[in-house]
Write a protein that binds this DNA or RNA. Sequence first.
DNA 1: GATCAATCTAAGCATTGCTTAGTTTTGCGA
DNA 2: TCGCAAAACTAAGCAATGCTTAGATTGATC
Lengths: 221, 221
Amino acid sequence: MRLKKKSGYHHGDLRRTLLDVSVATIDKHGVDALNLRELATRAGVSSGAPYHHFADRAALLAAIAEEGFGYLEAAMIRERDAAPDDATSRLAALGRAYVSFATAHRGHFRVMFRGDLIGGDSPELVQAQPRVFQLLWDAVEDCQRSQVAPAGDLQPLVLTAWSAVHGLATLWIDGALPYKNLNPERLAPIVSNLISHMFAALAHNPASRTRSSRRQSTVRR
Amino acid sequence: MRLKKKSGYHHGDLRRTLLDVSVATIDKHGVDALNLRELATRAGVSSGAPYHHFADRAALLAAIAEEGFGYLEAAMIRERDAAPDDATSRLAALGRAYVSFATAHRGHFRVMFRGDLIGGDSPELVQAQPRVFQLLWDAVEDCQRSQVAPAGDLQPLVLTAWSAVHGLATLWIDGALPYKNLNPERLAPIVSNLISHMFAALAHNPASRTRSSRRQSTVRR
DNA sequence: GATCAATCTAAGCATTGCTTAGTTTTGCGA
DNA sequence: TCGCAAAACTAAGCAATGCTTAGATTGATC
């Protein structure tokens, strides 16, 4: 990953090269290992050149995050539309796409939720995340309409589904899972299985209304 | 958070002070904002002093992570033992404790899973995480024994439970949840509800065997 | 009371993010 | 085609920060 410059002085597509080299570095060594001077050297330019394409390091990372959300959204839509045409299958497909994206694009994923690094100023980035979230929200709502998710407040359901896939992706990427035998291929069916049955099972369990307003009447005043 | 030195030259308990000030800074501004020189100034010592207590920045962060795992383990045990004496309630208590810890000790939690920062060398740290994991594992196993979790391979069940609480905690801490009305108090019942019913419901759903060996016989050769 | 280890200070080196001033190239209108 | 303004890049350097080194101060132990 050291895309060379073509002519002498002008690089040709330095912005693209910087993004690619950065993502590869972050994938291999983490965000903190990304060094703008070394990055410039690897891209074949001087250390000041990147600043003509990105205001600062945070802006570079924000661009990576934005790109990542774009890829993620596309992958989720693709998998969802390729899934069988029932609400549960489509939600499961979204979950699988989420985890698959994280494991396959570690470099992007490692940046996408680091609000502390990228300082959520970029307007494109601010809009990218809610779009992904909306996909999930709509799918859960479909499950509810199809009565394969419990009635009631949608928020806890969406939160549960998102947390499960996000947690799995995060733990995997951080290398926190104490399983040696766990590769990304084995992750997908776990997600599938989880999502497919979780809401369906909950829907038939009368105790699982999700409104949090189950205060006991004795406590009420 | 600027514990002063008592006498003139020697601080008294610099190590403790460094940890406390660090955690407070990380809680407020993130790990990347932690600056050893400013840290030293805040603790009232010169910029070289911290290196007599921590080999480098990574070692300081590792100490914070280790401390965090200790607190987390204690909180989980406390909540579990205070819960009603059935497997489901105890697992739910573990989950609540996990999320509560994360929101209440953001400074610690932000470091605990950043293997890229702390370089997993410290032997105490290496042992701390599996202990927490074991708590979860045992609780899920109890659920299985009590038949409130599906039979079969335990790994996907543990993974699901852990992912859900870890994801919720992570999303919350990263400020990624697009809910304005969501405070830590509202998180706890969501976790409780999720954990309490997830496995129980799954246990009665015959399609949810967790062994991933459900290849169709037609594909088998 | 002397000695030694632990703790701390002062000073400085190397790395890295970013800026500034000037150079080279490209694109575009006259 | 010419000329010029904007874009892209280089070279040099400042400031912040992690870490090291040499030496000063303190507290503990015999």
